[in-house]
């Protein structure tokens, strides 16, 4: 949940300053700080964009432009878990469409959607560069490959 006025804790603010100090220009830390903001606030709302812009002395429009350019920043509340199914060529050849269909039915949502209980957001994504284990998906930080409908079911069962 994003509070209406997002605010990092003093420790998080110190981390922001540490990250900014790593780069010849503090703006180099914008992507890492947005990752931190997403971890802390759940997603990057307009209020978070404005808050982060303030930390860098940047225009909120610049931060908005960056947030909307990259696929890993969420601009709306997301599920507690992100399941990203690769649908690029090697995974496609290995049966990714069937894996994605299985997840659609199992979760009752289309790619881009989140289950009603807020447990899972399902995405179809471009190559995650794990073609040797195709078909594969990413669940949160983890890569899982050589998928079958059965192994996908077990993965989903384990998500709280």
């Amino acid at each position: 949940m994003t509070p209406s006025r997002p605010q990092f804790t003093p420790e998080q603010q110190a981390e922001v300053r540490r990250l900014q100090g790593l780069y010849p220009d503090p703006q180099g830390a914008l992507l890492p700080v947005l990752h931190l903001a997403q971890d802390v606030f759940g997603y990057i709302s307009e209020e978070v964009e404005e808050y982060v812009a303030g930390l860098f002395g940047l225009a909120p429009a610049h931060v908005h432009e960056v947030v909307t350019f990259y696929t890993m920043y969420f601009r709306e509340p997301k599920g507690r878990h992100i399941v990203s199914v690769c649908h690029n060529l090697s995974c496609h050849l290995a049966g990714a469409p069937g894996i994605l269909d299985h997840l659609r039915r199992r979760l009752g949502i289309e790619p881009g959607g989140t289950t009603d209980d807020g447990r899972v957001t399902l995405l179809a994504v471009e190559c995650l560069c794990a073609c040797e284990m195709a078909p594969m998906l990413q669940v949160d930080d983890r890569y899982e490959g050589n998928l079958t409908p059965e192994t996908v079911d077990r993965l989903i069962d384990q998500l709280q």
């Binding site: 220009d25 180099g28 992507l31 990752h35 990259y70």
Partner: peptide, 27 residues
């Protein structure tokens, strides 16, 4: 050595797109 994380954009593998991204911009 600074280890920097991208945020999802194929174009950042292009060396000048990567530099833009490293500078805190869209790639």
């Amino acid at each position: 050595v600074v280890v920097h994380r991208g945020a999802g954009a194929y174009i950042c593998g292009e060396e000048t797109g990567l530099i833009s991204s490293l500078e805190g911009r869209k790639g």
